[in-house]
Amino acid sequence: EAEIKAARERAIVPLEARMKQFKDMLLERGVSAFSTWEKELHKIVFDPRYLLLNPKERKQVFDQYVKTR
Results as ranks from 00 to 15, higher is better:
K39S: 10
M25K: 00
E57V: 05
A33V: 12
K59E: 15
I44C: 12
M19N: 04
P48V: 06
W37I: 08
L52A: 12
R69H: 15
R8N: 05
A6K: 13
E28Y: 05
K43H: 03
E9N: 12
R10D: 14
R8M: 09
R29G: 03
R18H: 04
D47W: 00
K56S: 15
R18A: 05
V13P: 08
V13A: 12
Y50K: 02
A17T: 08
A33K: 12
R18N: 04
R69S: 14
R29P: 00
K59L: 14
K67P: 03
V45Y: 06
A11T: 15
A33G: 11
M25A: 06
V66T: 14
Y50C: 03
S35R: 04
R8K: 15
I4A: 03
F22Y: 05
G30P: 01
R58V: 02
L15N: 11
I12K: 11
K5C: 14
Q60E: 10
K67V: 13
K56T: 13
M19G: 04
E40T: 04
P14N: 05
T36I: 04
F46I: 09
L26C: 05
K56R: 13
K5F: 10
P14T: 09
D24E: 14
I4C: 01
L53I: 08
E1V: 06
S32F: 03
E9Y: 05
M25N: 00
F34W: 11
I4T: 07
F46S: 15
W37Q: 03
R8A: 06
T36H: 05
K23R: 13
E9W: 04
A7Q: 12
R18I: 01
A33E: 14
A2D: 06
Q21A: 10
K67M: 12
R69Q: 15
I4D: 14
E1L: 04
K23M: 07
I4H: 08
Q60N: 12
S32M: 05
Q64E: 13
H42T: 10
F34E: 11
R10W: 07
Q60R: 10
L15F: 06
E57P: 01
R49T: 04
I44L: 08
L27D: 07
M25S: 02
Y50T: 03
W37M: 08
I44F: 15
D47P: 00
Q64Y: 07
V61C: 10
E9K: 13
E40Y: 01
P48F: 07
N54H: 06
D63T: 10
T68I: 07
E3S: 09
K43F: 01
L15G: 05
F62E: 02
V45A: 14
P55T: 14
H42Y: 04
A33T: 06
E1A: 04
D47L: 00
S35E: 12
E38M: 02
V13I: 07
L26V: 01
T36E: 07
I4N: 05
R58N: 01
E40A: 13
M19D: 02
N54L: 13
W37C: 02
K5D: 13
Q64I: 07
H42P: 15
E9A: 10
E3T: 07
R8L: 05
V31W: 02
G30L: 02
Q60D: 10
K43Y: 00
Q21G: 05
F22K: 00
L26A: 00
E28N: 04
S35M: 03
Y65K: 01
K20I: 02
L27W: 09
S32C: 06
A2H: 04
L52E: 05
E16F: 09
S35V: 02
T68G: 09
A2L: 10
K56W: 12
F34A: 13
D47M: 00
F34K: 14
F62G: 01
L41A: 09
E3Y: 08
K59G: 09
K23I: 05
P14F: 04
V66D: 03
E40V: 06
W37Y: 08
N54F: 02
M19L: 07
K39L: 09
P48L: 04
W37G: 02
E9T: 11
E1Y: 02
K20M: 06
M19P: 01
L26H: 00
D63W: 11
K20H: 07
K56F: 14
M25D: 00
A6T: 05
K43A: 02
E3P: 05
S32G: 10
L15E: 10
A33P: 14
G30K: 14
P48M: 07
K5G: 07
E40S: 08
Y65N: 01
L52V: 07
K59Q: 11
L41K: 14
K59V: 14
L27F: 08
L26R: 00
R58I: 02
Y50D: 00
R8Y: 05
E9L: 13
L27Q: 15
K20N: 08
L27A: 14
L27G: 13
M19W: 06
K43E: 02
A6E: 15
P55C: 06
R8I: 04
L26F: 08
A17F: 06
N54I: 02
T68H: 15
K39C: 08
L26I: 03
L53K: 00
R58L: 01
E38Y: 03
D24A: 09
H42D: 15
S32R: 06
F46R: 15
L15T: 12
R69W: 13
A7S: 09
V61A: 12
E57H: 06
E1T: 12
H42C: 09
E57A: 07
V45D: 15
A2E: 13
K59F: 13
S32A: 12
V45K: 13
A7G: 14
L51S: 09
Y50N: 04
L53V: 04
D47V: 00
A11G: 09
S35Q: 07
Q64D: 14
L52D: 05
P14E: 08
K59W: 06
L26D: 00
A11S: 12
E28L: 03
R49Q: 02
R18P: 03
L26Q: 00
L27M: 13
E9C: 01
P14A: 09
V66R: 10
R10A: 14
G30H: 09
L51D: 10
Q60I: 09
K5Q: 09
D47R: 00
Q21D: 11
L41R: 11
D24R: 07
Q60G: 09
W37E: 04
A2Q: 11
D47Y: 00
I44W: 01
E38V: 03
L51M: 06
G30C: 06
E3N: 06
R29I: 05
E57L: 10
Y50M: 05
K5L: 12
V13C: 08
K59D: 13
D47E: 06
L52M: 10
E57G: 04
K59T: 11
S32V: 05
E16P: 12
R58E: 01
K5N: 13
T68D: 15
A11M: 15
I44T: 07
K23Q: 11
A33L: 10
A2F: 09
E1G: 08
V31G: 00
V61M: 12
K23Y: 11
L53F: 02
E57Y: 13
T68Y: 07
I44M: 07
K67W: 10
K67D: 10
R29Y: 04
R8C: 02
D24C: 11
R58P: 01
S35A: 12
F62Q: 02
I12M: 14
L53S: 01
A33C: 14
D63S: 13
P55R: 11
V66F: 09
E16D: 09
D47C: 02
F46M: 13
E38G: 07
